[in-house]
Design a protein around this nucleic acid. Structure first.
Length: 573
RNA sequence: GAUUCAGUAGCUCAGCUGGUAGAGCACAUCCCUUUUAAGGAUGGGGUCCUGGGUUCGAAACCCAGCUGGAUCACCA
């Protein structure tokens, strides 16, 4: 029976699948298929003079076909790229029986099917590197048609571009858009580059809880969940800072973690509810040392990924070569506005904000005002990597007071392409001061600041045992990946960015329709014309339904016996 | 959350001032022994996102909703 939910092409492919089985071929074989080469290896190393690659075994997906009678060309795509294959009927079917070529390859296989090949590499008359196929094995039959993207001289035809489909069906995106795959390979290289750098300095990669009874380490709203057997609420971590510092207390001198963090906030091209940070804590260091480390590490990443410190991002070329520019927050504001705010009190800052047309409200304290002025007047202008140092204390409850400047903390951010790339401090290790700072946060929380930090007694207990002077860093991996891969949106550097769940139509089971007296063969037709549940049928116009059903029967040549109007009437009562 | 744009065949997209739904690729059938996004001929394929409204008549106009994009606000 025809399934009305499938497109014509899907039905044809399902039929082909059955035909393949009827020929005694398993379309989903269990046996290992031994691959001894990839498309890119052949492209790089094949040499006509050497006559190498004369016994290759390769597997991948059919991406295009050009059938020319008893010979055919097709493109095979494996993990590393595409290569042309050449099939000749009498080579893959040396005996009398030509079914494998005439029927299986020409009729029953489709674009998207996964096959294994054995053969030899040669160059066609037209000069295209190809594999002459001697043996063909079906490894997996596809029953959905793939979008066909064509490309010539770098120009894309019929591209698969719709962002919604690309993100929801990333597997399709990866198959048909090779640049997407490259971006994700680069992302992994980036993380490996960081690992290499940190491991070579013998810092320990660790794992800390994602489910936390008290969230902390950043200013953000969390996701809340519940543990049943403990009967307690838990939060998905917004940062792992407080746990890594506990490990420093415990005696590790350098620890880091690639940490998936979760923040229950808005989404846009720079924000996904879950994102990755790399946090690093090193004992006996300060934020000056950390600045040098960040420079060195990010410069290495650029070189590992691009072979140079220069990276093209949008319209700009960003150069990660050391040393980067350094400004204190007061200096950079003066640099871009000509106004020195370093000695101003709250009233003067309010006036300055007004003068610079920086939006503000009465609840903002001194620190928040300075931060706002910086954000409005400077951030957009900082394209090349730049360190901004020495932040107001109010904004940084986990950072150590500045060694010489009152009201400031030893903190820096690196700004690049107008966005924060990382955030680091000389960590606060004075337990009394830390308790006071938490208490100030509690006051903010009571005033309605949803992002204020909450007091973590266990963390305080830990540093009361003594934490060495430590420098800590948090670096946004997604943001860094966007820059390093020239991606315009965070969704382009996450395999599966968060999307609203796809809505599925709720259908009643066939049984429920049978209970109404609807014959089995008509149930899917009734659903196809729009009545997915038996409730939908209640009290509708039976004449109209009857006409719709008979119409479908005729249109789709279902070959069913039309029901009588009176029968239909009983279904809708 | 606000503003704005979009949703038509498996994919990419046309569709004028409201008058029977179109193209290319893909698919099917036939022909063809080396093609380079594209060999030739023929053919099938549609809940025009959903639901209301206006109208003799809606893919198009109006209203509401769904989904996505862009910009803005919060956040990294």
């Amino acid at each position: 029976m025809i399934n009305l939910d499938l497109s014509e092409q899907e039905i044809i492919r399902r039929n082909s699948l059955e035909e393949i089985k009827k020929l005694g071929i398993d379309p989903y074989p269990a046996k290992e298929f031994k691959v001894n080469v990839t498309s890119s290896e052949i492209k790089e190393n094949y040499d006509v003079a050497k006559n190498n690659y004369q016994k290759v075994s390769i597997a991948g997906r059919i991406m295009s076909r050009r059938i020319m009678g008893s010979a055919s060309f097709a493109e095979l795509q494996d993990d590393k790229g595409r290569i042309q294959i050449y099939l000749k009927r009498d080579d893959i079917c040396p005996d009398e029986d030509k079914t494998l070529y005439n029927t299986v390859f020409k009729k029953l296989l489709d674009i998207g099917d996964i096959i294994g090949l054995e053969g030899f590499v040669f160059i066609t008359k037209v000069g295209e590197l190809s594999i002459h196929v001697q043996k063909l094995t079906i490894l997996s039959k596809t029953i959905r048609p793939l979008p066909i993207v064509k490309e010539k001289n770098g120009e894309i035809y019929d591209g698969f571009n719709d962002p919604e489909q690309r993100y929801r069906q990333r597997y399709v995106d990866l198959i048909v858009n090779p640049a997407v795959k490259k971006t994700f390979v680069q992302r992994t290289k980036l993380m490996n580059s960081i690992r290499e750098y940190l491991n070579s300095r013998e810092y320990l990669e660790v794992e800390t809880p994602i489910l936390q009874p008290i969230y902390g380490g950043a200013a953000a709203r969390p996701f809340k969940t519940h543990h049943n057997s403990l009967n307690t609420d838990l939060y998905l971590r917004i940062a792992n800072e407080l746990y890594l510092k506990r490990l420093i207390v415990g005696g590790f001198d350098g620890v880091y973690e690639f940490s998936k963090d979760f923040r229950n906030e808005g989404m846009d091209r720079f924000h996904n509810p879950e994102f990755t940070q790399m946090e690093l804590y090193v004992a006996y260091k300060d934020y000056n040392w950390m600045m040098n480390t960040v420079e060195e590490m990010v410069e290495k990443i650029a070189i590992d990924l691009h072979g140079t410190t220069e990276v093209k991002v949008g319209e700009n070329i960003i150069n990660f070569k050391r040393p980067w520019k350094r400004f204190t927050m007061f200096e950079v504001i003066e640099h871009f506005t000509g106004i020195d705010i370093s000695e101003m009190d709250e009233k003067q800052l309010l006036e300055t904000a007004e003068k610079l047309k920086v939006p503000f409200d009465e609840t903002m304290g001194k620190g928040k005002l300075i931060d706002e002025i910086f954000g409005e007047t400077c951030e957009a202008k900082l394209i090349q990597p730049t360190f901004i140092t020495d932040y107001p204390i109010e904004m940084s409850p986990l950072a150590k007071k500045h060694r010489s400047k009152d009201g400031l903390v030893e903190r820096f951010e690196a700004i690049c392409n107008s966005k924060e790339l990382c955030n680091a401090y000389s960590e606060l290790n004075d337990p009394i001061d830390q308790r006071n700072r938490f208490e100030q946060q509690l006051l903010l929380g009571k005033r309605g600041d949803e992002e204020a930090m909450i007091l973590d007694e266990d963390f305080l207990r830990a540093i009361e045992f003594g934490m060495p002077p430590t420098s800590g860093l948090g670096i946004g991996i997604d943001r860094l990946a966007m820059i390093m891969t020239n991606s315009n949106s965070i969704q382009d550097v996450l395999f599966f960015p968060q999307m609203r769940p796809e809505k599925k139509d709720i259908k009643d089971s066939v049984d429920k329709f049978l209970e109404l007296g609807i014959p089995q063969e008509w149930v899917s037709v009734v659903q196809k014309v729009g009545f997915l549940t038996v409730k939908d049928l209640k009290g509708i116009n039976s004449n109209k339904l009857h006409q719709q059903l008979c119409g479908m029967n005729k249109k789709h040549k279902l070959g069913l016996k039309n029901p009588l109007i009176d029968e239909v009437k009983t279904w809708v009562e």
